[in-house]
């Protein structure tokens, strides 16, 4: 089966998932992202790489944060940015997804940044866009959120330098998380020898072990000696019902506190894709504490998205 993300030259045509992404492309994206940051890793320069190009943020599911970071990234690359909140317009008027995509192509977009509630939606859109249009998946259902995973990898590399000697734990609702799936594939691709998932059985996909991770249900055991803790957001609708009895009970068992974090290595870093539920999946002391690199993630996220967009724009097809 042809990898739908690569063109016939093996260049990145679309970014749909981190699964099956060649390690060279992953490293290129991280290296390129570093060039957009100054020596301290703080300031981001404005560059004309996408001058004259149009980037359409097409969000079928609302997200202010992710959309904003893509918008900033595109503007720093000097692109023209158009934001479309489709969730509240065409589809509710009965327009099909295919028609929406066709219409947007006719507006001469060069790049679509797409978020959709259905797993596989980004693949679907990539199959149907004009051949010179690039698609970036900004989150599809429970499937993938590749730029989030790549910015997480950038953050890990920034603080830990290497991947081959790390132990990483992903904590929380893996079952419904596109972030977790993308993180797992990216960590494996970059050669992390031990990836753990920690969650109650109701929040894990049935065959999660087949993704190459070790499964833990206990925080103390799962966090023992890890270098990186990747927290996941718990959606409000999961906090009570058949998956979990209550947010309080979840916090007691799986919320990241200083006490639980003490099981990790002393220099462990703590990450979260945001927005955080303080007091549910993470204690404020940890979120704002010395181990937390959550705000760096946000800054790096812009550089990584700039790297992805500029790489796609450079693909010759």
């Amino acid at each position: 089966m042809k990898n739908p993300q690569l063109n016939s030259n093996g260049e990145l045509q679309h970014l749909l998932t981190t699964e099956g992404l060649p390690v060279k492309i992953v490293r290129d994206i991280l290296d390129r992202a570093a060039t957009f940051l100054d020596a301290d890793g703080r300031e981001i320069k404005k560059v004309p790489l996408l001058h004259g190009k149009s980037v359409f943020n097409v969000f079928f599911e609302n997200s202010t944060r992710t959309r904003t970071t893509f918008e900033i990234a595109a503007k720093r690359l000097s692109a023209d940015v158009v934001n479309l909140n489709i969730g509240s317009s065409s589809t509710s008027k009965g327009e099909t997804l295919l028609d929406t995509v066709g219409n947007l192509c006719a507006m001469h977009a060069d790049m679509f940044v797409v978020r959709h509630a259905q797993s596989g939606a980004a693949h679907f859109i990539a199959r149907h866009v004009a051949p010179d249009v690039h698609v970036i998946n900004a989150g599809d259902g429970r499937h993938a959120h590749p730029t989030q995973a790549l910015l997480d990898m950038f953050t890990i590399r920034h603080y830990k330098k290497e991947f081959h000697n790390l132990r990483v734990a992903i904590v929380g609702d893996v079952l419904h998380s596109r972030v977790a799936r993308s993180q797992i594939h990216a960590l494996s691709t970059l050669g992390v020898p031990e990836v753990r998932v920690i969650a109650p059985k109701t929040l894990l996909p049935t065959m999660v072990a087949n993704l190459g991770v070790q499964v833990y249900h206990d925080m103390a055991q799962g966090l023992r000696d890890v270098d990186v803790v990747l927290m996941l957001r718990l959606q409000h609708e999961r906090m009570q019902g058949a998956a979990l009895p209550s947010a309080q009970e979840y916090f007691k068992n799986y919320g990241l506190t200083e006490e639980k974090l003490a099981h990790a290595r002393p220099d462990a870093i703590v990450m979260h894709p945001g927005p955080m539920n303080r007091g549910i999946e993470i204690d404020s002391c940890v979120a704002d504490g010395a181990h937390s690199v959550i705000l760096s993630q946000v800054t790096f996220g812009i550089a990584v998205r700039m790297a992805v967009m500029s790489m796609l724009a450079g693909a010759k097809g």
Binding site: E19, S119, G120, G141, R142, P205, T206, M207, V208, L211
Partner: peptide, 15 residues
């Protein structure tokens, strides 16, 4: 099917 592909693709599954 609630198996490898649904796990990987994040598709709602039928066990």
């Amino acid at each position: 099917h609630d198996g490898e592909v649904a796990t990987r693709c994040g598709l709602p599954a039928i066990p």
